[in-house]
């Protein structure tokens, strides 16, 4: 037996008091889209423990550069240039290597490249708004983009989203799948946002706010924000029933 505790069991139960509840009427869209009955729980089977794996070879050279990945040759997206970097960890504080991160955002004016977005702020012809990367052996990732703008949205009569970047993260198991949003340190709009406020615990909100890191800037190019992401942790297999069966 190896010294390190094996990590091939089921995942820790999700703390549903930490995540936003399904029904959160301050965010009006949840009212008709929130399940109302108690969910069904059972111990993880291989269907939950396994998940798709993506190789670094699927990535294009500019996948993690939103300033250039939609821009015409020789041009680039408009807006404050930033690098977002961090580490994907699990609840055991272990790095999660080789997992796909996908991100999307509005442009510097707060406008999405989407036919349903009718905000006055103009599209940037050189900004698409999507990117992706895969964590390295130590769970680290980074990408370059422009700072997204805040934007108004139909909820209350005067609700605005703080500047944010949407993240979709794969873990190693399908039930680690997580979508969240990254906010920016110091933004006074965070505390006013009905979507942020669906999260009941102040500490959980704080963990979604990226820190400005002046030591990680690219001099004369881009400032840096650090955003770590934590996925569900995994149990040791030591005392669990055999999965193979039969």
């Amino acid at each position: 037996m190896k010294n390190a505790r094996p990590t091939r069991g089921g995942f820790f139960q999700r703390d549903r008091t930490w995540h936003p509840p399904a029904f959160a009427p301050g965010y009006r869209s949840t009212v008709v889209r929130s399940p109302q009955r108690a969910p069904l729980s059972f111990g993880n089977t291989l269907s939950e423990i396994t998940g798709p794996v993506f190789g670094h070879s699927m990535l294009g050279e500019l996948d993690n550069d939103l300033i250039l990945n939609y821009a015409k040759p020789g041009e680039s997206a408009i807006g404050p240039r930033i690098v977002v970097y961090g580490q994907v960890l699990d609840e055991n504080a272990r790095p999660v290597p080789n997992v796909l991160l996908e991100f999307w955002q509005a442009n510097a004016g707060g406008r999405y490249r989407h036919k349903k977005d009718g905000y006055l702020a103009p599209l940037d012809p050189n900004f698409g708004g999507c990117g992706r990367t895969i964590t390295d052996e130590d769970g680290h990732y980074s990408f370059r983009t422009v700072m997204p703008g805040a934007y108004p949205w139909p909820n209350g009569i005067n609700d605005w989203r703080p500047a944010h970047i949407h993240f979709a993260v794969f873990g190693h198991g399908f039930v680690q799948r997580l979508i969240t949003q990254m906010y920016f340190e110091g933004d006074p709009m965070i505390a006013k946002c009905p979507i942020v406020r669906t999260i009941p615990d102040e500490r959980a909100i704080q963990s979604l706010i990226a820190a400005l890191d002046m030591e990680a800037t690219i001099p004369m190019d881009a400032r840096a924000y650090k955003f770590d992401i934590v996925l569900r942790g995994r149990r040791s297999t030591l005392f669990e029933n055999k999965l193979e069966g039969n």
Binding site: D15, W18, A93, H166, Q181, V196
Partner: peptide
């Protein structure tokens, strides 16, 4: 232990 990052829509 760490807490899982909170989900957002």
């Amino acid at each position: 232990r760490l807490k899982e990052s909170a989900s957002q829509t």
